[in-house]
């Protein structure tokens, strides 16, 4: 879709397919409209009558901020959970709002804060809180032909442990932006947004292949906790299963809501798959370790 037509639809409110969700987004902000054209260019717009899973509106704030230091505010359908950011950061505001919707309103999947990547159908869960390197590793692997299943959330069926793909722009922070740009200069990156509460943030545009393959769930064959340490040699170490269980529940955003089903699912995930810690001093060795994991 050409940028002008997209802007017109977004200004009125458009339903965007962000598998497995339909997101109704309304925004008059040109900075966000331009960003969506770039980052979500491979995603589909649905009919306006499509029932959305989430409704998000990102607009400017009122008052004096209309005239100076213009801000963007995300509205879901309750009071927004975030403080406004400068208007030029509206794309970050949208990603945060969508993350919040997924994390708090998804009742069908056990959600782990994790990237998920796959090679030849063999998926690896890479858990980690923000800043632990999962998105950098995800981008680096995707650049070498791995399937981009998700960079932020593993949406796991608690009965089968199958993971529903949720490809989104890969969020990179601070030094990771340079690392990925150097590793894969061909990957399309958004502008870098400096001065956010988490430093400088930028995004990698998902490929059409990632979007097209989204309806196919994946089954994990390993869980790998990443640890970047420039002083260490590359190493894969088996983690204790009990320690892994606790670490995975800590990474889940809705483990408690699932009760015993969540306990059983994490237990089966840990019992049925190797759980490893990957220590690496650079991107190349991280990718080599993950290649080793999927054989």
């Amino acid at each position: 879709m050409d940028p002008v037509a997209l802007s017109r639809r977004l200004a009125a409110g458009a339903v965007l397919s962000v598998p497995p969700f339909a997101v109704r987004l309304q925004t008059p902000l040109h900075v966000l409209q331009r960003s969506l054209h770039m980052l979500y260019g491979e995603f589909d717009l649905l009919d306006d009558g499509e029932a959305p899973d989430f409704v998000i509106r990102v607009s400017g704030t009122g008052g004096l901020h209309r005239f100076m230091r213009r801000q963007a505010m995300a509205f879901i359908d309750t009071p927004p959970p975030y403080t406004p950011l400068p208007e030029r950061m509206a794309p970050i505001m949208f990603e945060q709002a969508l993350n919040w919707c997924v994390a708090t309103r998804t009742l069908t999947h056990l959600i782990l804060h994790a990237a998920v990547v796959a090679k030849n159908g063999r998926a690896v869960i890479v858990p980690g809180q923000s800043g632990q390197g999962k998105s950098t590793l995800c981008a680096a692997l995707v650049a070498r032909g791995w399937r981009h299943v998700s960079d932020e959330f593993a949406l796991m069926d608690p009965s089968t442990l199958a993971i529903t793909a949720h490809p989104r722009p890969i969020s990179l922070k601070n030094r990771s932006l340079e690392v990925v740009a150097a590793w894969a200069p061909e990957m399309a990156q958004s502008p870098a947004y400096e001065g956010t509460p988490k430093g400088t943030i930028g995004y990698v545009r998902p490929s059409r292949a990632a979007v097209e393959s989204a309806p196919e769930p994946v089954t994990p064959v390993a869980v790998v906790f990443p640890r970047f340490d420039p002083a260490q040699a590359p190493a894969l170490d088996a983690m204790g299963k009990a320690a892994a269980f606790i670490a995975l529940t800590a990474c889940s955003v809705n483990y408690r809501e699932f009760g015993q089903a969540g306990f059983d699912a994490i237990g089966r995930l840990v019992d049925g798959n190797p759980v490893l810690g990957a220590t690496y001093p650079d991107t190349g060795s991280a990718v080599a370790l993950l290649e080793q994991v999927v054989g």
Binding site: G240, K241, A242, A243, F245, I246, T249, Q260, F263, D264
Partner: peptide, 20 residues
């Protein structure tokens, strides 16, 4: 109480409290 036991320890899920 539901148990999962491994070499490095175990976890229990208490259905009454919902805690692990």
């Amino acid at each position: 109480l539901h148990w999962r036991e491994w070499d490095d320890g175990c976890v229990i899920f208490n259905r009454t409290t919902g805690e692990t």
